[in-house]
């Protein structure tokens, strides 16, 4: 976990250091530290920084080719990346495919069962509060993230899960859960930040269900770096398949309050012919836009507000809502 602030020149997190070079570039350096329990348990393992940097490199490459915009610009050496400076959201996103970790403690359920569908949870990034779970509406109401941004972040997170899960499975691995951080750049664009490695995910061997992630360290189950090396080796051996699914943006257009809606009135009468009394019926439009797999990070909000105001809706008579899926 790491805070990036443009004003500060350098910031040292629990396992990585960030140095701001200029408004366009920053350095992300992986150290050999390892921590658990919100920093309560610490160690320093030789070669761990390079190993996680390597994992982050290969997984972020896969995500980039699957259309996820990431903050990495270039890998400079074994432990250093050049990245985009971002204002990181104070919430992190966790996606769970199989029960493990805090959700089991929270609801008193055993780990190991696969969820019926991937579960997305949001947590506040605050060690002192032990990273509490936060609901989407609270996160928005507290101003941690805008509603529109949250929609996009969730869409990206599900997309990351789809592509990782598929490729991990190919490599004989179960992707149990993982954590993602996102940030906003100075133009308002949203990027996937931080890292992806054994530190930020739970991964088990498909056959033996042996843990290959930081739980080994957390629970003192043996040599954590051994697991990290297995992970790295397995993922290097397969040929990655990027995700070819389009990203869907839904636009819902409704007539403005108070303006006449003749279509709605006609449907209202027709519904009433079925013996159902209604107070009012408003007829709008639904537009689904699909984007090709290779997404640039784009200023969705600004672009869609423009296209809505100038084309899809007539602001005099209609309002719109954007959903990203």
């Amino acid at each position: 976990m790491m805070r990036q602030e443009n004003e500060e020149k350098s910031y040292s997190g629990k396992v990585k250091t960030l140095e701001i070079l200029n408004s366009e570039t920053a350095k992300m350096i992986f150290r050999d530290d390892i921590t658990a329990g919100d920093g309560a348990k610490k160690d320093n393992l030789n070669g761990k920084g390079a190993l996680n940097a390597r994992m982050t490199e290969i997984l972020f490459n896969l995500l980039t080719s699957s259309g996820i915009p990431t903050h990495i610009l270039k890998k400079e050496d074994d432990i250093t990346f050049l990245v985009r400076p971002l204002k990181i959201f104070p919430v992190e996103v966790v996606i769970r495919n199989t029960l493990a970790g805090s959700i089991c403690r929270r609801y008193g359920i055993p780990e190991g069962e696969e969820l019926k569908k991937p579960l997305l949870e949001i947590f506040v990034k605050d060690d002192e509060l032990h990273d509490p779970l936060i609901s989407e509406s609270v996160a928005v109401s507290l101003g941690y993230i805008e509603e529109f941004e949250l929609g996009l972040v969730k869409a990206y997170a599900h997309r990351v899960n789809k592509v990782l899960k598929h490729n991990f499975d190919k490599a004989g691995l179960i992707l149990v859960d993982f954590k993602l951080e996102f940030g906003r750049d100075k133009n308002g664009l949203i990027w996937l930040a931080d890292e992806l490695s054994g530190d930020s995910m739970r991964v088990w061997d498909k056959e033996t269900r042996q843990k290959l992630d930081k739980d080994v360290f957390r629970k003192d189950l043996g040599d954590v770096l051994e697991g990290y090396r297995t992970l790295e080796k397995r993922l290097s051996e397969i040929e990655f398949e990027p995700l070819r699914e389009p990203l869907n943006v839904n636009i819902i257009i409704t007539p403005k309050e108070g303006i006449p809606n003749p279509g709605g009135n006609v449907v209202k009468r027709a519904i009433e012919n079925f013996g159902i009394n209604t107070q009012s019926v408003r007829l709008g439009k639904f537009i689904q836009i699909s984007f090709q797999e290779n997404l640039e990070s784009r200023n969705w909000k600004e672009e869609f507000h423009k296209v809505n105001n100038e084309l899809l809706t007539n602001p005099l008579i209609e309002v719109f809502k954007i959903q990203i899926r």
Binding site: I259, P260, N261, P262, G263, N265, V266, N314, L316, I317
Partner: peptide, 10 residues
């Protein structure tokens, strides 16, 4: 100025 909505009876 203004906008043209669907006719009263659509």
């Amino acid at each position: 100025p203004g906008a043209l909505l669907p006719n009263r009876h659509t």
